[in-house]
């Protein structure tokens, strides 16, 4: 069974789905790192909040009698993105902005504190129990069959992958073509200089957090749809893996984050499929260590020159 092409294809599809989720979270890490040079450790928690807002919205829609799935999905998407984006904005405004000129360790420890805070905040408000949800989208298409082993691509996986691609296109357009994107790239290169030529640096950084949080909330929604169960702790592991993805792709590089996400998703899926499912997290961390040792700038990253 494990040697068949069908099995391989199955893992490939799983890996791509998982990788899309990681990639979307990783973009938030990479953007924030690019622009203010800090690891937003609480980003995983933002993803988790996105998942919680999604499940609450789904339940409310169910109570309100909205049963047409596409409409429900769009409403949940909009609500989750908006509310979670405000969490991202507040996080930056309250916890990170005052520390922008402080040593890096201070910012990192603040981020860890924020992560612990948000985790327990959600735990207190929504209890520590698992929150299961009925599958919203069911069914799929059969794509391949070999010796009775059927490989199917579920509609859920299609939605996840298509939505990710769509968001990536929108996102890349924003970065490459709009004024905001230009301001972001300017701030990334030199914040003081950007401020001198009239870029509103505070606003640009705020919007970066808003965009990152919005994408993370989409990832949270996808996680909820895909696994059907969430709890307050999902942000921790997903956050670390997404960070690994961002480092793997080259931190600061947006296509790198997506590529890294897909790679981590694939590695995890194939590792679970061909070796043992228990050690899949170890595999992801080992990759992180190996990348940092042998190619600290990541796959698509630019070399970082240390100036004295």
């Amino acid at each position: 069974m494990q040697n068949s092409f069908a099995y391989f294809l199955d893992q490939l599809i799983n890996g791509l789905t998982l990788g899309s989720i990681y990639g979307l979270i990783a973009i938030g890490y990479t953007m924030v790192y690019g622009i203010i040079g800090m690891i937003n450790f609480a980003h995983g928690e933002i993803f988790m909040i996105g998942a919680f807002v999604s499940i609450i919205t789904f339940l409310l829609l169910g109570m309100a009698g909205v049963t047409w799935v596409p409409l429900a999905l769009i409403i949940v998407l909009v609500v989750a993105m908006t509310l979670t984006a405000i969490y991202g904005w507040t996080l930056e405004r309250v916890a990170y902005r005052p520390l922008r000129r402080s040593p890096r360790l201070a910012a990192l420890i603040t981020a860890i504190g924020m992560s612990i805070f948000l985790q327990n905040y959600v735990q207190l408000l929504q209890s520590a129990r698992n929150k299961p949800m009925q599958p919203v989208v069911s069914g799929g298409v059969q794509v391949f069959e070999q010796q009775g082993y059927v490989v199917s691509l579920s509609f859920m996986q299609m939605i996840i992958i298509v939505l990710t691609v769509l968001l990536m296109i929108i996102f890349t357009t924003v970065i490459v073509r709009t004024t905001l994107g230009r301001a972001q790239r300017a701030c990334e290169q030199d914040r003081d200089m950007a401020a001198l030529i009239g870029v509103n640096v505070d606003r640009t950084i705020s919007l970066t957090f808003v965009m990152g949080a919005a994408l993370a909330s989409v990832a949270g929604l996808m996680f909820l749809l895909y696994y059907g169960v969430i709890d307050f702790y999902i942000g921790f592991l997903a956050g670390i893996k997404a960070f690994t993805a961002a480092v793997l792709g080259g931190i600061g590089s947006l296509p790198g984050a997506m590529l890294g996400g897909i790679l981590i998703g694939l590695i995890e899926a194939f590792w679970s499929g061909y070796f043992t499912v228990e050690y899949k997290d170890v595999a992801a961390f080992s990759i992180l260590v190996l990348v940092l040792i042998f190619r600290p700038t990541g796959l698509l990253g630019k070399p970082d020159i240390e100036k004295v």
Binding site: A95, P103, T110, G113, S115, I116, L118, L124
Partner: peptide
């Protein structure tokens, strides 16, 4: 509330005195 206060304390202390 322990861990909640804990996270908050970490943030506040860093903000107040990095």
């Amino acid at each position: 509330y322990r861990m909640l206060a804990f996270g908050m304390a970490m943030v506040l202390i860093m903000l107040w005195r990095p």
